[in-house]
Design a binder for these strands. Structure first.
Lengths: 257, 257
DNA sequence: CTGTCCCCATGACGACGGTCATACCGTCGA
DNA sequence: TCGACGGTATGACCGTCGTCATGGGGACAG
């Protein structure tokens, strides 16, 4: 799989279900179980009785791929946490393009930025996969914040981490070319999710060309060009359920160390 | 001043003292007065006795233009607050350019991102003017955090605000051209510091061409081209101690609404 | 007064990457 | 089986902006 040249016909394409822009409102689901909260990092360290309160106040909702969790500019009525699935946080750019700020997964909080101050969401959120989220009404969450220093600490840590990541991306966008940005993106994904395979690393994180383009702040055409060239050069290949970093060395090189 | 065309000879240039890269260590100053803290937003709402503790633990330092307050990658030993002056927060880009993430002024905290988790500073800080900072040792600050919910709230608010601003800049950098970014920069400065003058707005916030370029993520040449063209077109002029937005309409236009 | 230094200004040139246009292929529904 | 659709692929073109090179002008030291 890694050794010989890949024929065009062999190149498996990502199979990503079409995005149905239809659904805004998510399906409601049964009331959450307090034990479920233990699996969410943010709530793990709060007192058990507080978890019960959160569970009682919270609601689970199910989103299909493409469903909107919230839209930029809306007031944050809920504090949202991903129980299962992936959600992209993105801003719409003048000109029609989107810029994906971050992709959150299981256990990550959504809209932590907005909920505390009650500011409108600074970006939109849309499900990438079939996703289940825990919605806790803002007031209930704020009440819990008052009493749980552990929760405040978690929130503060999360914010600082995101802030650091954003400054990093800002400097990449300003300083590095498109190809370098792609290289860094995949190296980061590999570090986070990659598992060894055939001498390379498999990243079980499917993304369409459009999504890749939106993550690096470029156009789909430029993205496709680079990805298809890398495929031919044996640097990185696309599979139906993720990517394979065949030659990490070259990527490190292109990333500019 | 606004009506007639500006001759090249008339265009006053910014007088910005040369940056001496020499000084890293700042001059030490007398122990701070607790009353001084009342003027710093972050400490205003903490209990008076806590302000006394902070004042006792803290030290004032003086920085000249170009002096380094801290460098990217260093561990945050102190929590720093600007008492007087301006400090730029910037990242060095591969290729030698700098990207200014933010310019902080009197009352703003520095390194709030790093101090809580103890992570190394994600960016460097350098004084733009003669500046006085209050340094509170990290441990003392953390102790105070434990006991002062007001301080925690202030920190959280500050971080969320910065996060929102950064996402905004990220999308600008990805979506808008250089000229639009300059227009937005000046409109923001005008909104924050501008005072009406001769039908336009004067922004008493001197910045060199290089600093402007670093704030918008471009090169000094491109910056100079735009600024000198705007000067000729009567859109915006440079003065020794700031800028004059002569025609805000055009800037709004260029900013893309 | 004169040399030096730093900041500002302007022109020429080229490349990176965005835009437009076209085509291929697999999936799905009729 | 056929057609429509969405995602992927590739070529041609060109504008924006980064790079290099050169020159002017004010401030300051000797």
């Amino acid at each position: 799989m890694t050794g010989h040249a890949v024929q065009p016909a062999e190149r498996a394409l990502i199979r990503i279900s079409p995005v149905h822009q239809c659904g805004y409102h998510a399906r409601h689901m049964p009331v959450p179980d307090p034990d479920l909260l233990v699996r969410l990092p943010l709530f793990r360290r709060v007192r058990p009785e507080d978890r019960v309160r959160v569970a009682a106040a919270g609601r689970l909702r199910r989103y299909e791929r493409g469903d909107v969790v919230f839209e930029e500019g809306e007031p944050p009525d809920d504090f949202v946490t991903i129980v299962e699935g992936r959600v992209k946080i993105f801003k719409r750019l003048p000109g029609g393009r989107d810029l994906i700020l971050q992709i959150f997964g299981t256990g990550d909080p959504l809209g932590a930025v907005a909920v505390y101050e009650g500011r409108p969401y600074p970006a939109s959120a849309q499900a990438l996969d079939p996703t289940v989220c825990l919605h806790v009404p803002r007031q209930a969450f704020l009440g819990l914040l008052e009493e749980s220093p552990a929760l405040v600490r978690g929130l503060l840590s999360g914010l600082t981490l995101r802030l650091i990541e954003l400054t990093e991306r800002l400097s990449e966008l300003a300083g590095a070319g498109v190809e370098a940005r792609f290289a860094r993106l995949f190296l980061k994904l590999s570090e986070q999710f990659g598992i060894p395979r055939d001498g390379g690393r498999f990243v079980p994180f499917p993304l369409s060309r459009q999504e890749l383009a939106d993550m690096t702040g470029t156009t789909i055409e430029t993205c496709i060009r680079i990805m298809s060239r890398w495929g031919k050069e044996g640097v990185l290949t696309t599979e139906r359920d993720g990517f394979v970093l065949v030659n990490g060395q070259v990527l490190e090189q292109l990333a500019g160390r």
